[in-house]
């Protein structure tokens, strides 16, 4: 099967600055993938290139089997909703009508239901909407377009947690009936973690983690207890984030723990706490302390 999105060796330079550095990944058919990383990591650049709003400096990009910049075939089959999306000077209902002409899979029924869900006034001019309401208009378009490739770039500006929950629920409900390739960049990882099948973390333009979300759960554990016992348990394991307070020590152990490890931790009277996916991403993109130390000493 042709992957929905295929990126190989993608590099993007701005005046000598590397925004994307040899990025390679494929996303097969229907799935929901999180694109995660710090501000300035390159997430927006990557999404804009996939949506043909920006050019690559080098590398190969295929969206639904075609080069996004050369092909009219994928117009209307890809939607990108950005943070602080700008809209033409129109009323909400007119903006939606324009969008409906552009996306062949547009569902007027879904758009109407979402307008009600988000309490959006259809006759108000978009310019007069609050920031959060403008974000909601973007979400309505992003979902109602039912585009085969649906890209959201931190679509939440100004949205309260209740509205975000509505977005997650409606996305999940519509995705269940109309599966598509969804790629979402966000910082609110714990909120969305359950929806994600896969997580791609980029840092300084390069992919630092690309894994099935469920494989990461339970794979990073905070281990706390008497310093000697913690050191005995951690010996020979991949660890980071060591902290010590008096005779107590805590350390983050990377790699899933087997039943035998759990029994051993119990015997050593250690307390184990699995880290959330958000913490896992922080460890992946957060430039581990050893890394920082290496650079300062160099």
């Amino acid at each position: 099967m042709t992957p929905a999105i295929s990126v190989a060796g993608l590099t993007r330079r701005y005046r000598g600055q590397l925004a994307l550095d040899d990025v390679t990944f494929d996303i097969e058919g229907a799935s929901i993938t999180g694109l995660l990383g710090r501000n300035g990591a390159g997430k927006t650049t990557l999404l804009r290139i996939i949506a043909a709003q920006e050019f690559a400096s080098a590398g190969r990009v295929r969206v639904l089997g075609a080069s996004p910049v050369q092909s009219d075939a994928i117009a209307g089959r890809v939607v990108l909703i950005r943070e602080d999306q700008t809209f033409p000077e129109l009323r909400v209902c007119q903006v939606l009508r324009v969008a409906s002409l552009f996306y062949p899979n547009w569902s007027a029924e879904l758009a109407e239901a979402l307008l009600a869900d988000f309490d959006l006034p259809p006759n108000r001019r978009v310019r007069k909407l609050s920031r959060g309401m403008r974000s909601a208009v973007g979400m309505v378009i992003g979902l109602a377009a039912r585009a085969e490739v649906t890209l959201f770039d931190e679509p939440y500006a100004g949205l309260d947690p209740v509205a975000r929950q509505i977005f997650y629920d409606r996305l999940l409900a519509d995705y269940a009936v109309h599966p598509r390739t969804v790629l979402i960049s966000t910082h609110l990882i714990d909120e969305i973690a359950g929806l994600l099948e896969r997580m791609v973390v980029i840092d300084r333009g390069a992919i630092v983690l690309d894994a099935a979300a469920d494989d990461l759960r339970g794979s990073v554990t905070s281990v706390r207890g008497p310093a000697l016992a913690v050191q005995e348990f951690a010996a020979g394991r991949h660890t980071c984030g060591r902290r010590q307070l008096a005779s107590q020590e805590s350390v983050v152990v990377i790699g899933a723990l087997a039943a035998l490890d759990l029994a051993r931790a119990r015997a050593l009277r250690l307390s184990l706490e699995p880290l959330s996916l958000q913490q896992v991403v922080i460890h992946a993109a957060g430039r581990p302390e050893t890394d920082v130390r290496d650079r300062t000493s160099a």
């Binding site: 999940l172 009936v177 359950g194 994600l196 099948e197």
Partner: peptide
């Protein structure tokens, strides 16, 4: 799986 996905707010594939 879709009912479970909606209930737990998780991906239907999961």
């Amino acid at each position: 799986s879709n009912e479970l996905a909606a209930y737990y707010r998780i991906n239907p594939a999961t």
